[in-house]
Amino acid sequence: MSPPRKALPPTFSSQEFRSALGMFATGVTIVTAVTAEGQPIGLTASSFNSVSLDPPLVLWSLARAAGSLQAFSTGSHYAINILAADQKALAERFAVKGGDRWGGVDYTGGAGDAPLLAGAAATFECFNRSRYEEGDHVIFVGEVERCSWRTGAMPLLFHGGRFYTELPI
């Protein structure tokens, strides 16, 4: 049996690829941790998925160019906060580079002191189990040590480059 062939070069532009990916509606998360100096860090991410029930594993990805890559790569824990529909402003705040992301944000310290955002629809407190470099991103696999959720919470959604509290029908 011959080894698999390499993928053919893409027949589309980066913008076309981004537009096609935008057709997949996702939830919205803010991934949080603390730096080696104990400062909270966080960013909005829609690249979140379950991996395994036993052991409980989840994944998310971060651009290699992100300023927070070092802290997320070397820290022992992070938290994945699934945002509720009423947290759109928080998603926008943590999606923008620079500025004060944490001023006035209500949170408690979770596993490894990773911030757990008040009002989140669900939280996953993760041990930073493994990382895989692929393309221009790093894929993080976290082993979930604790999780919680708010019964009846409606999720914030992302589709076509926009946030929604419900998808238009």
Rank of each mutant, 00 (worst) to 15 (best):
residue 2 S to Q: 13
residue 4 P to R: 14
residue 4 P to Y: 13
residue 5 R to H: 13
residue 6 K to V: 09
residue 7 A to P: 13
residue 8 L to A: 15
residue 8 L to C: 06
residue 9 P to N: 10
residue 12 F to H: 15
residue 15 Q to H: 08
residue 15 Q to Y: 05
residue 17 F to L: 13
residue 18 R to P: 04
residue 18 R to K: 14
residue 19 S to H: 08
residue 21 L to P: 00
residue 22 G to I: 01
residue 23 M to C: 14
residue 25 A to W: 08
residue 25 A to T: 09
residue 27 G to D: 00
residue 27 G to C: 03
residue 28 V to F: 06
residue 29 T to Q: 02
residue 32 T to R: 07
residue 32 T to W: 03
residue 32 T to V: 09
residue 35 T to I: 09
residue 36 A to R: 14
residue 36 A to D: 11
residue 37 E to P: 02
residue 38 G to N: 08
residue 39 Q to F: 05
residue 41 I to S: 01
residue 41 I to V: 09
residue 41 I to L: 13
residue 43 L to F: 15
residue 43 L to E: 01
residue 44 T to R: 00
residue 45 A to F: 10
residue 45 A to C: 15
residue 45 A to P: 08
residue 50 S to C: 02
residue 52 S to F: 04
residue 52 S to N: 03
residue 54 D to W: 05
residue 54 D to N: 10
residue 56 P to H: 08
residue 56 P to T: 09
residue 61 S to T: 04
residue 61 S to C: 13
residue 62 L to H: 11
residue 62 L to E: 09
residue 62 L to V: 12
residue 63 A to L: 14
residue 64 R to H: 12
residue 68 S to W: 05
residue 71 A to V: 07
residue 72 F to R: 04
residue 73 S to H: 10
residue 74 T to F: 08
residue 75 G to A: 15
residue 76 S to D: 13
residue 76 S to H: 11
residue 78 Y to D: 04
residue 80 I to P: 10
residue 81 N to Q: 07
residue 81 N to L: 11
residue 82 I to G: 08
residue 84 A to M: 10
residue 85 A to E: 14
residue 85 A to S: 15
residue 85 A to N: 11
residue 86 D to G: 02
residue 86 D to P: 01
residue 87 Q to A: 09
residue 87 Q to K: 07
residue 89 A to K: 02
residue 89 A to G: 00
residue 90 L to R: 04
residue 92 E to P: 02
residue 93 R to S: 00
residue 93 R to T: 01
residue 93 R to Q: 01
residue 94 F to G: 00
residue 96 V to L: 15
residue 97 K to M: 08
residue 99 G to K: 04
residue 99 G to A: 07
residue 99 G to I: 05
residue 100 D to T: 10
residue 100 D to C: 06
residue 101 R to I: 06
residue 101 R to Y: 00
residue 101 R to T: 09
residue 101 R to Q: 06
residue 105 V to H: 00
residue 106 D to H: 08
residue 108 T to I: 12
residue 108 T to R: 14
residue 111 A to W: 13
residue 116 L to I: 15
residue 117 L to A: 10
residue 117 L to I: 15
residue 117 L to P: 03
residue 120 A to T: 06
residue 122 A to T: 12
residue 123 T to D: 10
residue 124 F to D: 09
residue 125 E to T: 03
residue 126 C to A: 11
residue 126 C to W: 08
residue 129 R to E: 11
residue 130 S to W: 04
residue 131 R to T: 13
residue 133 E to M: 06
residue 134 E to R: 12
residue 135 G to F: 07
residue 136 D to F: 04
residue 138 V to S: 06
residue 139 I to R: 10
residue 141 V to Y: 01
residue 141 V to G: 04
residue 142 G to K: 03
residue 143 E to A: 12
residue 145 E to I: 11
residue 146 R to Q: 09
residue 146 R to S: 07
residue 149 W to K: 14
residue 149 W to T: 14
residue 150 R to N: 11
residue 150 R to K: 15
residue 152 G to L: 09
residue 152 G to P: 07
residue 152 G to Q: 14
residue 154 M to F: 01
residue 154 M to C: 05
residue 155 P to T: 12
residue 155 P to W: 05
residue 155 P to K: 13
residue 156 L to H: 12
residue 158 F to Q: 06
residue 159 H to E: 03
residue 160 G to V: 09
residue 161 G to P: 09
residue 162 R to A: 15
residue 164 Y to N: 11
residue 165 T to D: 11
